[in-house]
Simulated scan of single mutants.
Amino acid sequence: MRITVVQGDITQQEVDAVVNAANRRMRGGGGVDGAIHRAGGPAVLEDCRRRFPDGLATGQAGWTTAGSMPARWVIHVVGPNHSAGETDRSLLTSCYANALRVADELGALTVAFPLVSAGIYGWPREDAAAAAVETLSGTRTQVEEARMVAFDRSAYELVERAVSHVNQ
């Protein structure tokens, strides 16, 4: 699998699936979650309610329609809330591994990922980038491109360094 890094808006990526850093309830929220729900429109929320009436546990993944976005699917993952004491790194890495598993089930070959838990959930950004890249590069999958989408320049540079470190 090829890991690419772009700076931009995850909701505008022309890929098979975008990964949403969701909260446990899966009803929308702030950050990436809010952006995906706004861009996808009501179909994303309706599918979340129908498919996941009780939400998802931390580290787990599930899919819904992407609604109005260019992608076909949204793969929702619930990252650990570091700020609230969820500091087990395996919960973070399982988000990426489980997202790839769901992508394989869907037949998605191109998947756009945010930096899970690195925003309001407070995971240290450098470790969040390392965990993402290590897990993506070390997980067997049919996905051909894992596109890390950084919203700003500093996140882009951080993820780019993590990718170059793994490729050494």
Rank of each mutant, 00 (worst) to 15 (best):
T110K: 09
R50N: 05
L158M: 15
V44K: 08
G34W: 14
N98S: 07
I120P: 01
M148T: 00
F52S: 10
I10K: 02
G138Q: 04
A131Q: 01
N20K: 05
D152Q: 04
G119S: 03
D9F: 06
V74R: 09
G122T: 04
L136C: 12
R49F: 02
R50Q: 13
P42L: 14
A22P: 01
R147M: 14
T65F: 10
V5A: 10
V19N: 09
V102C: 08
A150T: 04
A84Y: 03
A39Q: 06
G122V: 05
R125V: 10
A66Y: 07
G30F: 08
V143N: 12
G28D: 09
A146I: 02
D9K: 04
T65C: 12
E46I: 07
G85A: 07
D127A: 13
L45V: 09
V32M: 06
E157H: 07
G41Q: 13
T93Y: 08
V44W: 05
W73I: 11
I10E: 03
A21M: 11
V77Q: 08
N81S: 06
E145V: 15
D54E: 15
L115F: 01
A128E: 00
V166P: 00
G40R: 13
V19I: 14
A112W: 03
N81T: 00
H76Q: 10
E14Y: 02
Q168M: 11
D47K: 09
V77M: 07
V163G: 07
T135E: 07
A155R: 09
V163T: 08
G8K: 04
Q60L: 05
V32N: 02
H165D: 15
D9L: 06
V78T: 08
N81C: 04
T135S: 04
T58K: 00
R101K: 12
I3F: 05
Y96H: 09
T141I: 11
F151P: 01
T11K: 11
G29N: 07
I3Q: 11
L91A: 03
R25S: 10
V143Q: 06
L115G: 07
C48E: 04
N98R: 13
V102K: 07
A66M: 09
Y121W: 12
G41S: 13
A17F: 09
G8M: 01
E144A: 15
T135H: 02
G107C: 14
D33E: 13
T141G: 10
D104T: 11
P53D: 10
R101C: 06
P42M: 13
A35N: 02
R2M: 15
N20W: 05
T64H: 13
P124H: 01
A130M: 05
A155Q: 12
V74Y: 08
M148D: 04
I36D: 02
R27H: 10
A103H: 02
I36T: 02
V44M: 13
G40H: 07
Q13W: 01
V116A: 04
W73C: 06
T58F: 00
E144M: 15
A108N: 12
L56R: 00
F113W: 13
F113I: 04
P53C: 03
E46V: 11
T93E: 02
M69G: 05
P70A: 14
W123R: 04
